[in-house]
Each structure stands twice: as C-alpha cells, then as structure tokens.
Design a protein around this nucleic acid. Structure first.
Lengths: 266, 266
DNA sequence: CGCCTGCTTTCACAGGATTTTCACAGAACG
DNA sequence: CGTTCTGTGAAAATCCTGTGAAAGCAGGCG
C-alpha cells in the first residue's frame, strides 16, 4: 500500500566512508538503520526485526562464508545483500546459490545500494500478506493487521476500515500527540481540507467502541488545539489511584519528537 | 528446499551469443526456457507460468521503460531481471524502484545470470503460501490439490478451476483477511484491473456451493471495504438464536480485567 | 466446420454499510 | 466574557457488496 514503507536495515561493514554516506541517505529517507562492524549472531538479527541486512563478508575474514551460510540458512525470510570489493564470478555464484539475494560490487553508488535493498525487501514482503506486521498489543488491547481487527480482552471491536486504521495509527504511536493534519494525512492518504471534522468524528466512534468494551479506561486523550494522543495506561483518577508513571519511566514522550502546535486558526 | 527445482524462464533479448550460451546451460540444468526477440504482452507471460523473465530493455527501443513498467505493475509476482549493456546509476535506480528485481550489466557470465535468476525465483517462491501442497482440512471441509476437488463431509463440491483456486487460497489462509487485490493477484496471477468484480462473483458462487452442502455454516466472511476471510468455525448465532448486542445488559463484558485467551487461529 | 455446453467476465441495479457533512451545545483558552 | 475549539447527534452523500442475468470464450462433439 504505502509506497514509502519504512525499511529496517542492518549494515555490517567497516568501510566508514560507505557506511556514513549510506546512513545519511537512508535516514533521510526514513529508514531505520543499525550498524555493526563485525558478525552479529543471527538471533540478534531476528530480534531486530529487519527487512534486510547489507554486509561485506570481507570484514569477517575467514568466517565470511560460514557466517553467510548461517544467516541465509537460519533466516530465510531476511533479505541478504552482499556489498564487497573485488570478487570472482565463482564467488558471486556461490554466494547467490547459498541464499544471498543480491551481490553488489564496491565501489557502489549509495543510491543504487538503497534501491537494491528496497527491491529485495519489496519482494520479500510480497506474497506474505500486504499488511504484514506483528500484532500490536497495548495493555488489554490487541491489534491484528492481518485480520483488520482489534480485540479488547479477546472480544472483537468490530471496527470499520477507517476506524481500524485510525486506531492502528494512534496505538502505534502511543504516548505521542498526533496532530489532526498528520492523522488525516496518514489514514486518509491525502491532505485534510480546511474545516474537515472527519478525524473528530472517527475519534468519537473509536472512543465509543473502546469504552463499551472497557469502560473507565480513557485510551484516547484530547490535546486542545493540537490533536489526539493514545495512552495504553488507564486514565488517572478513574481507578481512584493516580498512578503517576512518567517519573519512573525512562522514556516518556520526548517533547523533541512531539511537534508543537502550529495550529493556525482562521 | 531442493536446490535444483526446475525454473521457468523467459529471455527477451536479441543478443544471440548470450542467448545461445545461456540456453545451453539452462537446459542442461533442467530449466524450461522460452525465448523472444521483442516485447511479449504481459498476458502471454502470465500464460507461460514463469518464475522469472530476463530481458534487455534496449531491444525494445523507446518502449523499454514503458514495457518494464507495465510488466512490473501487472505481474508483481513475476521475477524481473534486466540484463543490459551500459547503464547509468540513475537508470538502474529507476528500474529497481519501478519493480525490477535485479539489474545485471553485460557482459555477464551466464553462470552468474543463472544464479541471479535463481535468487530472484527463490525469494519469489518463498513468499507464496506454503500450504499449496498437501490436502487442507478445515472442519468438515477437505481440499485436495492433487484432485482439484474439495469435499464437504465426503461429498464433492464440484468446483470449477477458479472456484477451486479461490477456495484453496482462502482456506489456506484461514482466519486471515485477504484483500481483493491480493486474492486476484494470487488466483488470477496478475494485477486486478480497477473496477473488476470477478472476485465478488466467485465468492458468491463459492458461498452458494458451500452452503448448499453445509447450510448455516458461514465459511466466508465479508470485511467491508477490505476483502474476505475464511473461517473454519461455524458462524455464531446461526445454529441457535442467541441474539446480538443486548441493549441494556448491565454487564456485557466478561472478565474484562482477566488476561484474555489469545484468539486461537488455526 | 458449426453447434453445444459449461466456464468466465462484464454489466446494471438494489440494498446496505460507511463516510462525510452540518448545526448546535459545551468546554477550554486568553 | 468572548472567541475558538471539540463533542455530539443525526441527516445526507458516497461507496461497497450481493445478485441476477447477459455477453464473451474455449473446448468438445457431431
């Protein structure tokens, strides 16, 4: 659906020049990048929930082939792209037969490397359901992208398409305040017309359905003049127990992330 | 997986030397090869049931890009590998972004070309639903891919080809909502044209045949605005009359505090 | 070669479900 | 205290699906 799906990539290389340039571009494109200078155990790669890994087996020395084999064997769903210097046809063929998805030769234009990572990720994502993403769980709320449904305590909320996408967006950015414009842009896919109240209406519908299943919860908070914020914790004061979390929590909503309200009236 | 699975590849190129050498090797490896010297309509590519197509867009002249776009757009499941002479980074990036899976530069060792075709086909095959081999059994429904038939309680449903493939797809992804586009893509083999209602029509036929054999079952659920979902469990409320949505029920929520049992999907 | 038959695709329309719009009341803000 | 913004209920508009039937196709048979 979304043409600009965010890509999670790990780069295993010591070529600092290449890595730096690539990182800059990738982050500009909104990718999530991890970098390592040596072999990363396949288990950790799994934990990173990557789309693809871009590596130069040369930095692994003699273990290069073995590592490649292990990664390709254990993680058949992970896109593997080799980007290395001189290599023979035989080496490339060996790698590709082993499970490598693409083999690029350095020096390589970072834009092309990115395009190839995209190509591999795209093909990987295909076939699997489009809306591939693990279920999101917030408190007793569970969101299943593969079913287009959300559950509270096991009961389906019976959401419509827009309601579902809105909830998915909010819950996915839990703790963050999302401006109406942003919400509209992301859920509806195009810019919000001036004076459009659709977001408010759908927020109400969501609140209704959520609170029917789970009263006194207060998932969705209004930020006057700005937008809405989803909070998986019970609303304070409703359970006669304020429960101030923010102090203990090491990562409350970083106000640097939260866009300030440039809400233009009139 | 078997490393030597037979691959069906179409080569669109006029470089007779390259084609000859490649053909020889590919046939030695047991691949099924087709050759064309000009643009082949996407419909024909579909009919060939290919794993991948290897082409040099240069032989198509000005239509090269357009053709690439058409093929990649209509056949998102087909592996597309470009193998051409000089090309700029910008061209390669454009192609890869467009949907091309790999871009090789001539001169190119045929062994490497083959390895890349394999890599693309491998990844393509992986995504597909695995459950296309063995018989699928869901409740009292049994699907036998080897016979192209489905049975309910032992009675054949007498399905046509499309009906069968649709049912197979749905039942293989039971519990998951499949979007119309996805369904069409997988059953028909190419992208759905805007406004095509074929999926709906076949869903109706399936429902008719299924419910004639097993009334009050409700296998196929509609997700408004999204697609369909196959559910092997009997639809609730059809075997009895438990009613729906108590209007003034004081405690409709059961054990909302207790940890819920995760929805058991097959 | 032409007809017949069954399958697939297309079309138009009706009935619903969903989304958008609107007007007003209440709440928040300065 | 006035202005701006949000919550709400309901009407209006839009979109989506179910359905019946006709048109297009392909293959089998006389």
């Amino acid at each position: 659906m979304n043409p600009h799906q965010t890509i999670r990539l790990a780069v295993i290389d010591t070529d600092s020049g290449f890595v730096t340039v690539l990182s800059k571009r990738a982050e500009a494109a909104g990718w999530q990048l991890r970098h390592a200078a040596g072999a990363v155990p396949p288990e950790e790669l799994v934990a990173m929930k990557l789309n693809a890994v871009l590596l130069d087996p040369a930095v692994l020395g003699d273990e290069g082939w073995e590592y490649l084999e292990r990664v390709c064997g254990m993680l058949p769903d992970l896109g593997v792209i080799v980007c290395t210097g001189r290599s023979t046809v035989a080496q490339r063929v060996r790698g590709l037969r082993l499970g490598v998805d693409d083999w690029i030769t350095k020096p390589c234009h970072p834009e092309e490397a990115m395009a190839r990572v995209e190509a591999v990720s795209r093909r990987r994502r295909r076939g699997r359901n489009e809306a591939e993403a693990g279920p999101v769980i917030a408190a007793e709320l569970e969101i299943r992208p593969d079913q287009f449904q959300a559950f509270v305590g096991g009961d389906s909320l019976d959401l419509t398409r827009r309601e579902f996408e809105l909830l998915q967006l909010l819950a996915g950015a839990k703790g963050q305040v999302l401006e109406r414009e942003t919400i509209y842009q992301r859920v509806w896919g195009y810019a919000m017309a001036h004076g459009d109240r659709s977001v408010d209406v759908f927020i109400r519908k969501l609140r209704q359905k959520l609170e029917k299943r789970s009263p006194n919860w207060g998932y969705i908070h209004t930020h006057f003049g700005v937008g809405y914020r989803f909070d998986p914790e019970p609303a304070e004061g409703l359970l006669d127990e304020p429960l101030v979390i923010p102090d203990a929590a090491p990562a409350p909503e970083p106000s640097s992330q939260v866009v300030h309200s440039s809400f233009t009236a009139g």
